[in-house]
């Protein structure tokens, strides 16, 4: 069955994306499921003009954003946090594996998590993110900054723990 083949080809890569956007494992699976249903539904609209994976990937991100909008739009975070010019270590050794990093990202609030994903990993500009999420560019920037701070803190704590455990 062609659909199963397609699913098997992309499931792991797409699940990797869903995990970053979701708050937890189950949510990620839900996004993955909804995303693939959408892919199968819309596959006749894919005109083979771009890369197929990019298209699927976009659908997954869209699904994640949809979920973000429906679930979290009422949460109003104080957007005017002052930008703290934190010192980022700029380096952490490879002993923090991806799963650990994903867990850190998942622990962020939905807004921070989404902004961080879109900016730091997907590469959207603040302007685009603002439009996608219905927030201002400034809000996007401060959200990102805040997300970085929190993540840095988690990374630091992780090192502290691992140092202790040695």
């Amino acid at each position: 069955m062609a659909q199963k083949e397609l699913y098997d080809t992309f499931k792991s890569r797409m699940f990797g994306i869903c995990l970053r956007y979701a708050g937890n494992y189950d949510d990620a699976q839900d996004i993955l499921q909804d995303g693939f249903l959408k892919v199968f539904e819309k596959i006749d609209q894919f005109e083979f003009r771009g890369a197929f994976e990019g298209w699927i990937r976009k659908i997954m991100v869209n699904k994640a954003l949809e979920r973000f909008r429906t679930n979290y739009q009422v949460i109003n975070i104080n957007d005017n946090l002052k930008e703290v010019d934190n010192e980022y270590t700029g380096d952490f050794s490879s002993d923090i594996d991806a799963r650990e990093l994903i867990r850190f990202v998942q622990e962020l609030s939905p807004r921070y998590r989404t902004v961080f994903n879109l900016y730091a990993i997907e590469g959207y500009s603040h302007k685009e993110i603002g439009e996608m999420l219905g927030i201002t560019e400034g809000t996007s920037k401060s959200n990102l900054s805040r997300a970085r701070d929190i993540l840095q803190e988690k990374v630091n704590r992780f090192y502290l723990k691992s140092v202790k455990s040695i």
Binding site: S12, R13, L19, Y88, L101, V105, Y119, A120
Partner: peptide
């Protein structure tokens, strides 16, 4: 800092 996350997560498969 972003890049470190990106490198590890962008193509993460599970």
């Amino acid at each position: 800092f972003d890049a470190l996350f990106r490198e590890r997560l962008e193509n993460h498969e599970e």
